[in-house]
Simulated scan of single mutants.
Amino acid sequence: MGGIDMVNGVAGAVIGMLFAVLFQQPLQDSWFRVRRRWFGAVRSLRFRAEEPGPSWTTFSLGPLRTPALIVEGDGETPIPAEGVHIQVLDDEARLPAEIAHWWDEIEAESTRLRAEGRTPIWNGQRYAVESFDISRTPLDERPEVRLRLRPTDYYTFLAAQQLDRRLPDGSTLRSRYLDPDHPLEAPAFLQCSLGVNIAVVTADDMLVVSRRSDRVRTAPGTWNSSVNEGVSRHIDSSGRSAPVLHAVARRGMREELSLEPHEHSLALLAFVLDVEKRQWSAHFYARLNELTHQGLRARLSRGVADRWEHQSIDYVPFRAATVARYLLHSDRIHRWAPVAPALFHLALVHVHGRATVERAEAQAVRRH
Rank of each mutant, 00 (worst) to 15 (best):
N8P: 03
P187C: 04
R36N: 12
D236K: 03
S135Q: 06
G62A: 13
R302A: 12
A298C: 03
W103L: 12
A342W: 08
T77I: 11
G230L: 15
A305G: 02
F39K: 14
M253Q: 08
V323F: 07
S110T: 05
E92T: 10
E256P: 04
Q24R: 14
V349F: 08
E290R: 07
Q28C: 15
T58E: 05
T66H: 06
V129I: 13
R367D: 05
L343F: 15
A247N: 10
L45Y: 05
T111R: 01
R254Q: 13
A49W: 06
A188S: 12
A337L: 14
F19V: 10
V365M: 05
H182T: 06
S60V: 03
P183G: 00
V7M: 09
Q28P: 05
A203D: 10
R48P: 02
Y127I: 08
L167K: 00
G53N: 12
M6H: 13
P143E: 01
R335Q: 12
T292C: 03
G9Q: 10
A41E: 00
L167H: 04
D29I: 08
P63E: 03
V323C: 08
L266C: 09
R302W: 12
P338S: 09
A203R: 10
W38A: 09
L139Y: 13
H293Y: 04
K277S: 14
T322P: 11
L95T: 12
P261C: 12
R112D: 10
T156I: 14
D91K: 01
L268W: 04
R35D: 09
V84N: 02
V272L: 13
R176S: 01
P96K: 02
H329L: 00
W38P: 02
A320C: 04
A347N: 04
P243A: 14
I333Y: 03
R212G: 02
V349Y: 07
A100S: 14
N228S: 01
W56H: 07
V216H: 02
M253C: 09
L173A: 05
G73E: 00
Y326I: 09
R278T: 03
I15G: 07
L27E: 09
T137P: 14
N289S: 08
R65W: 13
I4P: 11
R136W: 09
A41D: 01
E141I: 02
V339D: 11
V208F: 01
S193K: 14
T152S: 03
E361K: 13
I99F: 02
R35F: 08
H345I: 15
G117Y: 04
I121D: 01
E276I: 06
V34R: 15
T156Y: 10
L269H: 01
G230P: 11
F32Q: 15
E92R: 11
T222E: 09
T156S: 13
P63A: 04
V14F: 12
